[in-house]
Design a protein around this nucleic acid. Structure first.
Length: 494
RNA sequence: GGCCCCAUGGUCAAGCGGUUAAGACGGCGCCCUCUCAAGGCGCAAUCACGAGUUCGAUUCUCGUUGGGGUCACCA
C-alpha cells in the first residue's frame, strides 16, 4: 500500500520550527517510501483567523523545499484541502454517532462548565461531568424546541483502559477514566479540531499520522472515533518536542517548550537573521533523529539525501534542545561549500550597499567564505572599507609581530613611496612588502602589521595586508597610510 | 495535582548484556599565521540514584529523583 502522510497546520501566520520539523518528517517519511505528502489547512477556529496566514504556510514550505503532492493550492483527488471548505462533511458523521447512541447532544452552557471547573478542589482538574449523557428523549426534545444551543459529545468508555501502538514510543496505555466525553461539534456548528482531524485523515486516506508527542495522551480519543466508525486506525508516529533553553533570574538553567522567549523560533525569524533554508532544514532534521548505516555520523545532508537516509527507527524519544551554535555551524558549512555564483548572489546586496565593484567579488569571496557564518555579517566584516575609524597609535603596538610605534614609523616611511609606484595587484604588493622585509632583515609580520592596521584603522580585518589594500584601492590606501604615519610622527615630535 | 512520556558529556547523539562508551557542536590547548577566521592535531567532559535479574549491566525489571507533555465549545 502506498503511504500517505499529511501536514495539517492551522493558519496562525507564524511557522514555528517545531511545526516545520514535523512537516519535514512527514514529508521525509512519505518520500522515503515513495508515498504521497498532503497539505491540509485546519482553519476551524473562526476566532483565530488571520489574514494571509495560509500564504505564510505555502511560502515557508516552498522555501524550505518541502513540496506537497496534494493541497489547497494544487488540488488532488481528496479535496477540498481546507477544512472551512469541508464543513458540510463533518456534521453528518457526528449525527450518525448520535443516532447510533455513540454520541449525544450536550446542552450545558459554557458558564456551567466553568463553574464546574472552578468548584474543583485545589490542584485538581476535572473534566465534564457527563450531565447530558443520559438525558431522556423528552428532555432532549424540550431543549431542542426551546432552541437551547448544544454541542455534540462523544461517549467515552467509563472503565477499563485504552491501548495503542506508536512507532517511536511503543505501546501506550491510558486508563479510560482519563478520557473525557470530547466535543465533536461546537455550538457554532463547527467541528472541533480533534473531530475534523479524524474525519479528514480517514477520508483523505492518510495512512501515517505523524505529529508532536503532545498528542500521545489524547490519541485514545482519536482511536475511539476510528473505532466508533469502524475505520482502520492509522499508523502513529509521535515526535519528541523541541525545547529551548533559558537562564532564569536565579541563574538556573530552564528548559521548556521552544517559544518566543528563546529568541528566534519562527522559520522567518531565522531566515531574517541570515540562516539559509537548506541549513535550517539540515539542522532540524538532525534534532530528534539520527541517521544510521552508511549515513551514520554524517552532519550535512541535502534534501534528497535526507529522503534516502530517513528512517523512523532513528527518531529519538526524548525532547531535544534547540542549539543555535550548531545551527550557526551548519549554516557556515553551507556557505563554505557554495559555488562562486551562489555565494556572490547572496553577498551582492551587501556589496551594493558598500558600493563595492564587481571586480572585487572573487577576492571578497575568498576573504569572506571562511569568515562568515551568515551573510548578514558582511557589513560588519567590511565596515573598515566605508571610512577610516579614529584610532590611537597604540594600534601599532603588537606583541606577537614585535610591532611598535617606532618600528611602524620607520616602516611606513619607507613603504609608502614604494606602494605609490607598485603595480596594484596582490602579488606585486606582496613582493614589494616581503622584498622590503627581506632587505631590512625584518620578519614579514613586522612590516605587514603597521601597513594593514594603518590602512584598515582597526586591528582585525577579514584578510591580510595585500587584500585590504586592494579593496581600498591605491589612492585611499596611501591616504590612510599617510594619516597613520602623521599620527605616529606627531606623537614623536611632541 | 491525576494521567502519559522521557533520562548517555554543556548541547545534538551512537550504543540495542561483555566496547579503551563512537561522532558532531561548543570549550580548552598546540600547529599554521601580518590580524581575525578557516584548516590540521590534541585535551577535558557522559551512562541521574537505589534495588534486583544475570557469570556479567549504560543496555532488562522495579522503585526513587529529575525533566517534559497533557488534562478547553484552541489547534
Amino acid at each position: 500500500m502506498k503511504i500517505r502522510t499529511r501536514f495539517a497546520p492551522s493558519p496562525t501566520g507564524f511557522m514555528h520550527v517545531g511545526n516545520l520539523r514535523t512537516a519535514l518528517y512527514e514529508y521525509l517519511t512519505a518520500k522515503h517510501e515513495g508515498g504521497t505528502f498532503v497539505l491540509r489547512i485546519e482553519d476551524t477556529d473562526r476566532e483565530r483567523y488571520v489574514e494571509g496566514a495560509t500564504d505564510v504556510i505555502y511560502n515557508t514550505l516552498k522555501t524550505a523545499g518541502i513540496t506537497h503532492d496534494e493541497g489547497p493550492d494544487i488540488g488532488g483527488d481528496y479535496g477540498p484541502y481546507v477544512q472551512s471548505e469541508r464543513l458540510s462533511l463533518y456534521r453528518p458523521y457526528a449525527e450518525q454517532l448520535v443516532n447510533e447512541g455513540k454520541a449525544y447532544r450536550c446542552f450545558c452552557s459554557k458558564e456551567r462548565l466553568e463553574s464546574l471547573r472552578a468548584s474543583a478542589p485545589e490542584g485538581t482538574v476535572v473534566g465534564y461531568d457527563r450531565h447530558c449523557r443520559d438525558l431522556s428523549e423528552e428532555e432532549i426534545k424540550k431543549n431542542l424546541e426551546e432552541g437551547i444551543p448544544y454541542v455534540i459529545r462523544q461517549k467515552a468508555p467509563l472503565t477499563g483502559e485504552s491501548k495503542y501502538h506508536d512507532m517511536v514510543y511503543g505501546d501506550i496505555v491510558i486508563p479510560n477514566e482519563e478520557l473525557d466525553d470530547q466535543i465533536l461539534i461546537k455550538a457554532d456548528g463547527f467541528p472541533t479540531y480533534n473531530f475534523a482531524n479524524v474525519i479528514d485523515d480517514h477520508t483523505m486516506g492518510i495512512t501515517h499520522v505523524i505529529r508532536g508527542s503532545e498528542y500521545l495522551s489524547s490519541t485514545p480519543k482519536y482511536n475511539a472515533l476510528y473505532e466508533a466508525f469502524g475505520w482502520d486506525i492509522p499508523t502513529y508516529i509521535h515526535l519528541p518536542l523541541i525545547m529551548g533553553k533559558t537562564v532564569d533570574e536565579n541563574g538556573e538553567t530552564v528548559v521548556s517548550k521552544l517559544s518566543k522567549r528563546h529568541g528566534s523560533t519562527g522559520f522567518n525569524d531565522l531566515i531574517n537573521e541570515g540562516f539559509l533554508p537548506e541549513a535550517i532544514i539540515n539542522y532540524i532534521a538532525l534534532l530528534g533523529w539520527a541517521p544510521a548505516g552508511e549515513y551514520e555520523n554524517r552532519e550535512i545532508f541535502s534534501m534528497d539525501e535526507l529522503i534516502k537516509a530517513f528512517d523512523i527507527g532513528g527518531i529519538s524519544k526524548s525532547p531535544s534542545v534547540f542549539d543555535y551554535d550548531k545551527l550557526e555551524w551548519v549554516n557556515a558549512e553551507y556557505i563554505k561549500n557554495m559555488d562562486s555564483d551562489t555565494f556572490n548572489s547572496h553577498a551582492a546586496p551587501y556589496y551594493d550597499e558598500l558600493g563595492i565593484d564587481s571586480a572585487h567579488y572573487a577576492l571578497l569571496e575568498e576573504m569572506l567564505k571562511p569568515r562568515i557564518t551568515r551573510f548578514t555579517q558582511i557589513p560588519e566584516k567590511l565596515s573598515f572599507l566605508k571610512e577610516l575609524a579614529s584610532y590611537d597609535i597604540e594600534l601599532f603596538t603588537h606583541k606577537k609581530s614585535k610591532s611598535s610605534a617606532e618600528s611602524s614609523t620607520a616602516i611606513l616611511t619607507d613603504v609608502i613611496p614604494m606602494l605609490e609606484n607598485v603595480s596594484w595587484d596582490r602579488e606585486s604588493i606582496m613582493n614589494v612588502l616581503t622584498g622590503y622585509a627581506e632587505a631590512k632583515e625584518y620578519k614579514n609580520a613586522l612590516v605587514m602589521w603597521p601597513v594593514r592596521v594603518a590602512a584598515a584603522g582597526v586591528a582585525v580585518t577579514p584578510g591580510g595586508c595585500a587584500e585590504v589594500l586592494i579593496l581600498l584601492g591605491r589612492d585611499e590606501s596611501v591616504r590612510r597610510l599617510k594619516i597613520g604615519l602623521s599620527k605616529l610622527t606627531n606623537k614623536e615630535t611632541n
